[in-house]
Each structure stands twice: as C-alpha cells, then as structure tokens.
C-alpha cells in the first residue's frame, strides 16, 4: 500500500510522461519554423497557444464551454437518472429484469450515431434533441453498472435488513445503495465520460453555441488554429472532469477494503 503510494509520486516516472509530449511539441514547432509544413495547415504550438489565450480573452471560449458543460450535465442528469432508476429496479426485481433486460441489450447494440436520424425525426433539430442524444450515451453505463451493483448485494445484507426491520426507502438508502455504491460510482464516472464524448456529436447538428460549434465555425472559416484549440480544450476539460470524478470516487469510498483507488 505505502509502496504504491510512493510510486504514484515517483518524480522520474512523472517527468518521463512530460518529456515525450514536450519533445513532440518542440519537433512540431521546429518543423513549422523550418517551413517543412504550411503554417496554414499545421498550426505551430505557439500560435495555437496564442489562439487559445485570445479565445479566452474575448470570452468566446468561456461562454461556449459553459454551454457545452450545461448540455453534458443535463444529458447526464436525464440519461443517468433513467439508467439508475431502471438499474435499481432490475437489480432488485427478477421480474423487472426479465421484462427489460433483453430490450436493453438489443438497444445497446444500436450504434450511437444511428440514433441521430431518429432523434431528429422525433424532436427536430433543437436543444432537447441534443440533450437527448447525450442522454442516450449516459444511459447505458449507468443502467449496466447500477444493475451489477444492486444485483450483487450479498444475501447476508438482505437478511440483516430483514432481521433489523429495514423496509422500503430506508432499506434502499441504508443497505442497497451503500452496498452497490462502488459499482454505481463507476457507472457515474463512465456515464459522464460518455456524455462528454457524445457532446461534440450532439453539437454537430445545427447548433449556434458550444465548443463543438466553435470548431465547426473554425472549419468553415478555415481557421485551423480554432479547430485545434477546440480539440485541446475538449481533451483538457475531459481530463479535468475525469480526475475530479476519481477524487470524488476516492472520497466517497474511503475506508472500503476492496477499493484500490479506481484502476478501471
């Protein structure tokens, strides 16, 4: 345990992870300044950096990030809670499981993008369509992991609940959910992660805001630097969100033996 802890802060390993990207950046910058590539096609890192700063200053970036985060949040809230509720139901009741399980499995096979025409037909190209699209992405990891956690609650915990007269809501909140929590949190993490992945897909159709929109505008106006800035921002925000979620996971599951810091 303590050894693992030290290794996580091993300075050498950390540096190695920094040196390679820095080396690539230097090569890239060098190649462009030696005119090996057109600056118009492959924007050098320094220009990219300036573009990002510029977008920040103008407030464009911030407002579009806000819009995107908002969409991810609403999509996750919609799809995640649906997945959570159905996952709990399926985990607790074999009848619900038999009734819904096959349907969920079939729908899961439908590739995400294949939903798009359907959604557009149903809702038109509006904000709800975009959120619904993200929600579909958020739904599956949540229903699957919640079901796993709830159906895996040890028989002994159910018996203890009966012995000590835990019923309905108290049974759910004091026994089932805490017991299933490691799975549920994994579900939340994957669910938000997928929402983030599908955000750009959702912003590809008919939006006038969001980080995805920023990139599409950049493409249309042939501003490669803006397109690349969008990529950097999406990647960085995704990383930050994932790191925060892992911290959250560690905090909530502190004190549990089976929890090893979230390798998944």
């Amino acid at each position: 345990m303590s050894l693992k802890f030290l290794q996580r802060f091993n300075v050498k390993d950390r540096l190695l992870g920094l040196i390679v990207p820095l080396f690539v950046l230097a090569l890239w910058q060098g190649a462009v300044s030696q005119h090996l590539f057109s600056e118009l096609l492959l924007v050098p890192p320094l220009t990219l950096w300036n573009t990002i700063i510029e977008l920040f200053r103008s407030g464009d970036l911030i407002s579009n990030i806000q819009v995107s985060l908002n969409r991810v949040f609403l999509g996750f809230l919609l799809g995640g809670s649906a997945g959570f509720i159905l996952g709990v139901g399926m985990g607790l009741s074999p009848v619900i499981n038999r009734a819904l399980g096959p349907l969920v499995k079939v729908l899961q096979q439908v590739p995400e993008l294949a939903w798009m025409p359907m959604i557009i037909l149903l809702f038109g190209i509006d904000e709800f369509a975009r959120i619904f699209f993200i929600a579909i992405g958020a739904f599956y990891p949540m229903i699957f992991n919640t079901y796993q956690g709830v159906s895996g609650v040890p028989e002994k915990y159910h018996e203890l609940a009966r012995v000590f007269d835990y019923k309905s809501f108290r049974y759910l909140s004091k026994v089932i959910i805490p017991s299933a929590l490691p799975s549920i949190i994994t579900g939340i993490r994957l669910s938000i992660g997928l929402s983030w992945m599908f955000l750009v897909g959702a912003e590809l159709f008919g939006t006038e805001s969001g980080v995805g929109f920023l990139m599409i505008m950049g493409r249309q106006m042939f501003q490669i630097d803006v397109v690349m800035a969008g990529l950097v921002v999406i990647g960085t925000l995704g990383l930050i969100i994932n790191t925060l979620l892992k911290k959250f996971e560690q905090f909530v599951l502190r004190g549990r033996v089976s929890f090893d810091g979230g390798a998944a």
Partner: peptide, 18 residues
C-alpha cells in the same frame, strides 16, 4: 416474520464495510 425481540449473529461477519 422477524421480531424486534430477536437478534441474529451469522457465521460470516456480515458487517457493513461502509
């Protein structure tokens, strides 16, 4: 049904890890 008058100790500890 389980009664308030009864307590139960199982073979496995079945303590709640949380």
């Amino acid at each position: 049904a389980p009664s308030e008058k009864t307590g139960y100790v199982f073979q496995q500890y079945a303590l709640f890890p949380w």
